[in-house]
Amino acid sequence: MARVRRNFCHTCRACSEDERGVADILAIAFMFIVLVFAGVLLHYYSVTPLRAATDRQLSLKSGHIYGALDKAQVGSYTLSYLRAAAENLVLAQPTVPGDYLRSRMDNTLEYLRPLEYAVVVSLTRENAQPWVLVCPSGAGQPAAELKQFTHRGVVSVTKAEAAGERVVLVQVAVTFFRLP
């Protein structure tokens, strides 16, 4: 019975042309989909060098902002921004008052940062609350999925104690990320 049916289909011209037409359309549709995917992939990877160069520039900028804060002096004081912040973290009576330092550093970061990016300056030491400044203040801490560029360093502060002077090391991180 099956053989009779197959023979019938082979002899039926209309049926044979229908089957070939569907196969052609499927092949063309598949090639079109492959073409679209290939186009998207090729163009995505073709801008990879530029994306990497942009990241390198942002990394460089975070290093330079760190350098600027490490060297530039706070207002009329002779201390740099990072040293003054480290003193605020370590000493009970720092040279630069905390509120004044935050205000000046916020102004400076507002001036130095690119418009679409936020900067977080974070100083930490063992057994102490970290000293953190975010600019602009509404940006908050960067989300984990955001690309971040961090430059780290250490600032030392000499602390006078009953037993003598002690050098305290403060870890500093300047993080740069794009505002959402």
Partner: peptide, 11 residues
Amino acid sequence: YRASSEAALLS
């Protein structure tokens, strides 16, 4: 890709 590489090099 070439244009992107040139821009990356200049950067």
